[in-house]
């Protein structure tokens, strides 16, 4: 198995170190991850590629403190968060991580702006919700409720919500999974923009291989293990992607 190449000039902000995850499904043990080592370097855009069932969502959930590994360590700036309690994990998510999901998960009873304010009100150094909406190009829709927005618009609001607290890390789980091609590209552009302009360390999960070309680094998972890791010397802008 190829090891991630050592990088002297870049510091890893979040690292999965020898992480395994076993689910007990009735009488059967399912090994979702088997000793995975994946670092996330400061400021990079990493794409986690893999077929469904490869363990990529499990890895993302563990990195984002939504789940804990069965064994191994999760180091945030050198501190192992895997052994932390529920309260510390909540605070870790609150302070450092932004999430974007396949199904947006906006709160239907709050407008676009209020969905963002939901997060900015509990964060330490938030953007103004309007500023966050500007970033995703939706200022004119800010007083609309989710039911009044298209899927792509909802996903852009979700991204604005995720970045509004200026997290160090942005984790996106199949952000284009529920969208058509054109809308998907628009969403990826926004993620790329956030990574570039705010310098937010970003990990994107996808099973669409072409998306990998917009990343700084691509980690492929298969069967709960890292199958390959590759650096893109030439990043492609999302507008040029096709699949």
């Amino acid at each position: 198995m190829p090891e991630p190449s050592p990088s002297s000039e870049r510091t890893s902000i979040l690292t999965a170190e020898d992480v395994s995850k076993v689910y007990q499904m009735g009488d059967v043990q399912v090994h979702a991850l088997r000793g995975v080592n994946v670092p996330l370097y400061e400021g990079e855009l990493m794409v986690l590629l893999g077929p469904s069932g490869s363990g990529k969502s499990t890895l993302l959930n563990i990195l984002g403190a939504l789940d804990v590994p069965t064994s191994g360590r999760v180091l945030y700036r050198g501190d192992d968060i895997a052994g932390h309690g529920e309260r510390e994990l909540t605070n870790f998510r609150r302070d450092h991580v932004g999430f974007v999901f396949q199904f947006y998960n906006l709160v239907p009873s709050l407008t676009a702006r209020e969905n963002i304010a939901l997060v900015t009100e509990i964060s330490k150094t938030p953007l103004d919700p309007r500023e966050a909406l500007e970033l995703v190009g939706l200022t004119e829709r800010m007083d609309h409720f989710p039911a009044q927005l298209s899927g792509g618009e909802q996903q852009r609001v979700a991204i604005a919500r995720a970045v509004a607290k200026q997290p160090e890390i942005l984790l996106c789980d199949e952000p284009t999974g529920a969208l058509d091609f054109k809308t998907g590209i628009r969403v990826l552009e926004v993620i790329d923009e956030v990574n570039r302009s705010l310098g937010t360390t970003t990990a994107v999960i996808t099973h669409h291989a072409p998306i990998a070309s917009m990343a700084d680094r691509v980690v492929s998972l298969a069967d709960g293990m890292v199958a390959s890791e590759q650096r893109n010397d030439e990043k492609v802008s999302p507008a040029e992607l096709t699949w």
């Binding site: 609150r94 939901l118 997060v119 509990i122």
Partner: peptide, 8 residues
């Protein structure tokens, strides 16, 4: 969703 976003 709120729990994921960091609400207690």
């Amino acid at each position: 969703t709120l729990r994921v976003l960091g609400f207690t």
